[in-house]
Simulated assay, not measured.
Amino acid sequence: MRRSGELVQWNDGRGFGFVRDNDGKRYFVHISSIRRARARPQQGNRLTFDPASDEVGRSVAQSVVLLDVAPAARTPPPGSVHAGGIPVGLLPRLFGAALIILAALAATQLRLAPTWVLIAYLVLGIVSIGLYWADKRAAEGGRWRIAENSLHLADLIGGIAGGLVAQALLRHKVRKPAFWVYSWLIATMHFTGLVLVSLGFWRFPPVLWPN
């Protein structure tokens, strides 16, 4: 049976909070359980929800409807979705990741960079994808999150192609301008460096080449 209540605590950065029903009982609520609205949830919002329990027995609110916030439009604005179903805003991330891997491949094929460079980009990219996935799962479950600086560091040391792929496919960290600006700065730095190597403007020191 649906219940009515109030959002009495909300952490917008981590995407979760607590609901108190009209009988005074508290429920954990995650952003993924709140139906799309035109505005982000705020403390004090009146709402209705379905009470439930999660896998650890915690009382949670599901199918939450904010009563004092208009629902989001069901139809996306024209041009916001690609014909193939991929949001236009995410296509550049996939394209950027592909460019970085292709630049690393070119540098190694031209024998201007050791083979381990390409391998490092692929392996560290997978590591970055794993970190983004773990952070998204933690956000959905209301658990301790991976620090944004750690995600940036994983991208900076070579996982940037995987980081961009994770942002696109997981729809994670794509609504935080400060985060994706740093991501694009890191991507630009790596791509520019690889292009300079491929064009012969910079060479790896002999000590970095395997015998």
Rank of each mutant, 00 (worst) to 15 (best):
L102H: 03
A168I: 02
W116S: 02
A106K: 07
I126E: 11
S128V: 07
Q109N: 10
G163T: 00
A154I: 04
R111Y: 11
D155A: 14
H172A: 04
H152E: 10
L153H: 10
G162L: 00
S128M: 11
R137P: 00
P87H: 08
A97H: 08
V127Q: 01
T115L: 13
V174H: 14
R175Q: 15
A120M: 12
I100H: 05
D135G: 11
L105A: 13
I129S: 02
K136A: 08
I157K: 00
D135W: 05
S150C: 14
A139P: 11
K136M: 10
K173V: 05
L124W: 02
A106E: 08
G162N: 00
L170C: 08
A168F: 04
T115D: 13
V88Q: 08
G142K: 01
L94V: 07
G142F: 01
Y121G: 04
G163W: 01
A107T: 03
R175I: 15
V123Y: 05
Q167F: 04
V88D: 09
V127T: 00
P92Q: 08
G158S: 01
Y121H: 12
A104I: 05
I146L: 07
L94E: 02
V88M: 11
G85W: 07
I101S: 04
L90K: 15
R171F: 15
H172M: 10
R175S: 15
P87T: 06
A98Q: 10
A166T: 01
I129L: 12
W144K: 14
L91I: 15
W144A: 11
I160G: 03
A97E: 07
I146F: 09
L153A: 15
L99G: 01
A139Q: 09
A166G: 06
I86W: 00
P87I: 08
L102F: 12
L102N: 06
L169T: 13
G141N: 13
V165P: 04
A113M: 09
A104V: 09
Q167G: 09
I101H: 03
V174N: 14
L99V: 09
V88R: 12
A154E: 05
Y132G: 04
L122K: 01
L105I: 07
I126W: 13
Y132W: 06
F95N: 07
L153E: 08
A168M: 05
S128E: 12
A139N: 08
G130P: 03
R111K: 10
A98I: 13
G163L: 00
G159T: 06
L170G: 05
R137C: 03
R175G: 15
A113E: 02
A103Q: 09
A147W: 14
R171K: 12
L156E: 04
W133V: 10
I119S: 13
I100R: 07
V165T: 12
A138R: 03
T115G: 12
L156T: 07
L153W: 15
A107H: 04
T108F: 06
K176I: 11
G162F: 00
H172L: 06
G85P: 07
A113C: 07
V123M: 13
R137V: 08
A103E: 08
I100E: 06
R137T: 09
A113H: 06
L91Q: 12
I160K: 01
L156I: 05
